[in-house]
Amino acid sequence: MQPAAIKHRRSVALLHATLPYLIVVAVLLAWELLVRVNGIQPIYLPAPSSILRYLVAMLLDGSLSYHLSITFMRIMAGFLIAAASGILVGVAMGMSPLAARIIDPWIAALYPLPKISLIPLLIIWLGTGESYKIVISAVTAFFPVVISTFAAIRQVDPGLIKAAKDLGATPHQRQIKVVIPASLPGIFSGLHLGMGVTIIMVVAAEMIGGSSDSGVGYVLVHAGQVMQTEKVFAALIALAVFGAVLTNVQKRLDRLVAPWADEKH
């Protein structure tokens, strides 16, 4: 190949690699220009540079990490309760037809209910403290976890169970050594859905209730009420990055626990 052609191919590859980032920079620049040239008031649309200033200030005075860590603790509490109870109930349903028959109508009836509509009731029962935020997020996340776990166990390849039986596995061994590991990838996808709704519900619960004074949801509502639009944007960016980090960590954990799930077979 001609050196010129190689050089050309290299520059095309470089462009392909950097184009997504260049577009982000271009959009930010256009946004900045739009705000400055037209003199748009920051309460309507702050410039990226002033959002960044707020973000840095919140990082430096520790308020961002304070609110994020409180939101994180609530998310983990709600998620862990939902994951533990969801997997437990899902496994029970998958392994005992009687349990499935008893529990299934409840899930069918309660799953379509928008969980956010439970907030008034939960505030009456629990007040606007920590327990209300954790309960609402755990209740919401419970459903995707239990449904995915149940489905994963029911969809285990019967051939694997027959093979285990042929090799001498007792019914109990078949459950523990075949059914559970075979359904792990399905259970994990339920946990991903559960984590997603937990984040949503914790932030929503922090925004609703009024008496809350911590968490990213509180920062959003509070900054919005006093028209600190820069702070609203800064909190949104922090929340987006935080959510991405959480789901990424979760994916890595999945790969660590069930590395075969990504492989084709």
Partner: peptide, 8 residues
């Protein structure tokens, strides 16, 4: 026929 190996 389809082996039924345990993928994990």
């Amino acid at each position: 026929q389809n082996l039924n190996l345990f993928p994990w």
